[in-house]
Computed example of a mutant assay.
Amino acid sequence: MVTVTYFPGETVTLLLESVEAAADWVKWGRPTVVMADNGSTDGSIEEVEKTGLATVLHTGGNLGFGGGANAGVAALPKAMEWVLICNSDLTFAPGAIEELLSAAGRHPRAGALGPMLLTPDGQPYPSARELPSIGRGVGHAAFGWVWPRNPWTKAYRRDHEIPQERGAGWLSGACLLVRRSVFDQLGGFDPAFFMFFEDVDLGDRIGRAGWENVYVPSARVTHIGGHSTQRHQAEMTAAHHRSAYVYLARRYVHWWQAPLRMALKAGLTIRSAMARRSAALAGGADLPTRPEINCN
C-alpha cells in the first residue's frame, strides 16, 4: 500500500487505523505500507513514524500526487503483485480491501480496480467514469455546474446508474488497486501531470495496452477531505484546468488540429479564471442523491 502525503493533518492516522479491518490479513499477509511524503512540515508525519503503522519515504520535494505515488511504488519489492495507491484523506470500510482483492481474482485482465468512493455523508462520488472526449468534456465543463443532469455529464460520470461491478474508462486515483506488472510496464503515472488527470491518463493507457479498469462498488471507501486541498483551493483549481488541457491536447496532436488545441486552451483558461471567482463553478456538477447507499 502506498499513500501520498502533503500536510495531511490527522486524516492520515485515520486512514492507517482503518486498514486493520479492511481485509482478512491472516489470509493475505500483513500489508507493507509506504507513506510517500512530499515535504510536510505540520508534524503529522513524525506522529505516524511514532506509531510504526507505515514506513515514511521522504521524496525530497513536492512531486505532486503521481510523482509521489511513483516513488512509493518504486520503493516496494518487485515481487509484490498488487499495490494499493491511495490519498491520505480516506478511511476504508470494513472489508473494503478484501472486496478489491477478491474482485481481482474474478477479473484476470484487470490492470486496475477501484472502490466506490463515498462523501462524508455517505453519498457515492462518481469515481469510475468514461474517458473524456471533446463532446463529453466540453459539455460537462460548460453545463455541469448549472445543469447537473445534462446528457454530457451523465454520459461521462455514469453516476445516475445503479452501482454494479463493471468496466470503466478510468478510475479515481484517490484509491486504486493496480497490478504491479502493468503499472511498471506503463511507467506508472505520467509526471507531466503534477496533480489531476494523472489517473485519467493512466486509465486510458491501461485500456490501450489491452487491460481493464474495473469498478468494484462492493468495496466502500469514505473520502474525508484533506487539509492540504482546503488550504490550497485556488492552486488546485488552476492545476486541474492545466492538467485537463495537457490530457486533451495529447489526444489531438496533428498539425491540422492546432486550432482545436488553441480553442481548448483558451476555453480552459477562461473557465479556470471564472472558477477561482465562483464557488458554484469550481464545485462542478452536483452529485445525485442515493439515500439507499450508506457506508455504515
Rank of each mutant, 00 (worst) to 15 (best):
L202A: 08
H223G: 11
E98D: 11
P124R: 07
A239K: 14
G210M: 06
S133I: 00
A112D: 07
L268Y: 13
R205Y: 01
G283A: 10
R136P: 02
W145I: 00
E49D: 14
S102L: 15
V246F: 06
S172V: 06
R166I: 04
L76E: 09
R30N: 08
Q185L: 06
V216G: 12
T289Q: 15
L57K: 04
N38F: 07
V33K: 07
A285P: 11
Q123E: 13
A71V: 01
H241S: 10
R276Y: 02
P115F: 00
S228H: 15
S181Y: 03
E292D: 15
F183A: 07
P217M: 11
F183C: 05
K27Q: 13
W211M: 09
A74Y: 03
H140E: 10
M80N: 09
H58Q: 09
T32V: 15
L84A: 04
D159A: 12
T153C: 08
V48M: 10
V56M: 03
E212T: 02
K265F: 12
P126Q: 07
D201Q: 15
R220W: 01
A244E: 12
V34Y: 00
P217E: 14
R180G: 08
F183P: 01
M1I: 09
D204W: 15
G173T: 01
G188S: 05
A219P: 06
L171F: 00
V200H: 04
A279R: 14
L84I: 02
P115G: 13
G72S: 08
A142N: 01
L131G: 02
A141V: 09
L63G: 00
D121M: 10
L186R: 02
F183N: 08
M262Y: 12
P163F: 15
R149T: 09
A285K: 04
M195D: 10
Q164N: 10
G60F: 03
R158C: 07
R179T: 03
V138D: 02
R251H: 08
P108G: 02
R109I: 10
Q185Y: 07
L176G: 09
R290P: 00
E198I: 08
L281Y: 03
A275V: 11
A69S: 09
L176A: 07
V26A: 07
W152V: 03
V182M: 03
M195W: 10
F65P: 02
A234N: 12
A93F: 05
F92E: 01
G137V: 15
A96S: 07
A238I: 14
H223I: 04
A74F: 00
S88M: 06
R208A: 13
V146N: 04
H227A: 14
N70H: 09
T41H: 05
C86A: 13
C86E: 06
D89H: 02
W82L: 15
G105H: 04
R261H: 14
A234E: 12
G39Y: 01
S228E: 12
R290T: 05
V56T: 15
S278D: 12
L117K: 00
G39K: 02
L101F: 13
M1F: 06
T237H: 01
P94T: 10
R271H: 14
W170F: 11
R106C: 06
T153I: 03
W147Q: 01
G61A: 15
G187I: 09
R179N: 11
A128G: 08
